[in-house]
């Protein structure tokens, strides 16, 4: 008798545990912090999935993929969220992701989306950000920038995704002439930092007139600090995009839940959190629209290399960059 009661109790426990499936999402570090989108997204998704959403921070954007590859088939990850589109070819080549299976995702982006393995969750335009009180006539193009005596801080394309974005941006605008352009730009560059944080911090300290960041960066200062002195520039040649994508890991033990998360990712429960926590454009504009400051600078032309194209161009562009700036 006693034994059956215990057994029944155990069975109840077991079923309670299985009802609470866990979805493990690997993402980059700043996503999960109390200032990032993580906490809001966890609450909203758990309210509808009857599951536990486990957001795991794994270094920065580039480290995400190398961590997944290190773990290989034994990985606990069901979803990887936060891969830069510029690095998505390597993600595809790793053979660790499944197709997302969403036919025509409802996206609000200036470019077509044809990727059957990864779905975007946010995006932005790279742009040079300056302080209006210090720079009166900001350059309107790469040409004007190189001809000016303004000082800029940029990031290293070998260790930073904005740095990689600028590398490909220059390549997209100048093609064969990219190396020559970098040589012209060299005297404008104060320094090249490991990551975005160092560069942006240096800019705020007044070490440079402009910094490579995003068109949405001034919105942070406006909305969070009530400071409207920062501005971003839409270049005449167009601005390069950063698209951040997520994919379903092929070895996931909760494939339905993973699919459910990818669907949820493009709804307001996820997308509303993006603008004022990640300071990027939501991949699907939520019902309430975009916050103030997000549409004050809209580039006329959106530039981007997708997946394999970005990978193939990267190596050549990196060598041109290195050679031009090492002189």
């Amino acid at each position: 008798m006693k034994a059956t009661i215990i057994a029944a109790g155990l069975a109840t426990l077991a079923s309670a545990a299985s009802a609470q499936d866990t979805l493990t999402v690997y993402t980059y570090d700043s996503f999960v912090t109390e200032w990032g989108p993580g906490p809001i997204i966890k609450e909203n998704f758990e309210a509808q999935c009857d599951c536990t959403l486990d957001l795991v921070a794994v270094g920065d954007g580039a480290e995400l993929l190398s961590r997944l590859q290190l773990e290989g088939d034994r990985t606990e990850a069901d979803i990887v969220l936060g891969i830069d589109e510029n690095l998505s070819a390597a993600a595809r080549d790793s053979a660790m992701f499944a197709l997302h299976g969403v036919d025509s995702p409802d996206l609000s982006m200036p470019v077509e989306w044809a990727n059957d393995m990864f779905l975007p969750f946010d995006w932005g335009y790279f742009a040079f950000v300056y302080d209006k009180t210090r720079v009166e006539n900001p350059p309107q193009s790469f040409e004007e920038l190189a001809d000016s005596d303004l000082k800029i801080v940029i990031q290293d394309p070998r260790s930073s995704t904005p740095g990689l974005g600028l590398l490909l941006w220059v390549k997209a605008v100048y093609g064969e002439e990219a190396g020559a352009y970098w040589e012209r730009l060299a005297d404008n560059i104060v320094t090249v930092t490991k990551g975005w944080s160092e560069a942006y911090g240096m800019f705020l300290e007044g070490e440079a007139d402009m910094v490579l960041s995003y068109t949405t960066s001034p919105a942070y200062h406006l909305l969070a600090e009530g400071d409207d002195t920062k501005a971003a520039i839409a270049f005449e040649e167009g601005n390069y995009m950063q698209i951040e994508v997520a994919g379903k890991v092929a070895t996931t033990d909760v494939p339905e839940l993973a699919d459910q998360f990818l669907d949820f990712m493009l709804t307001d429960g996820f997308q509303s959190a993006i603008p004022e926590t990640n300071w990027m454009y939501p991949a699907h504009t939520p019902q309430e629209g975009l916050p103030e400051g997000f549409e004050s600078v809209v580039p006329e032309k959106a530039l981007i290399y997708f997946g394999t194209e970005a990978r193939d161009i990267r190596e050549v562009a990196l060598e041109e960059w290195r050679a031009a700036l090492s002189q």
Binding site: R158, I189, V190, T191, V192, K194, R322, L325
Partner: peptide
């Protein structure tokens, strides 16, 4: 790594660690 890069002014200042 990070110091050398940030103050080195560019890819000239690349260390093995980078």
């Amino acid at each position: 790594f990070a110091v050398a890069l940030a103050l080195g002014g560019g890819p000239k200042a690349t260390t093995i660690e980078l």
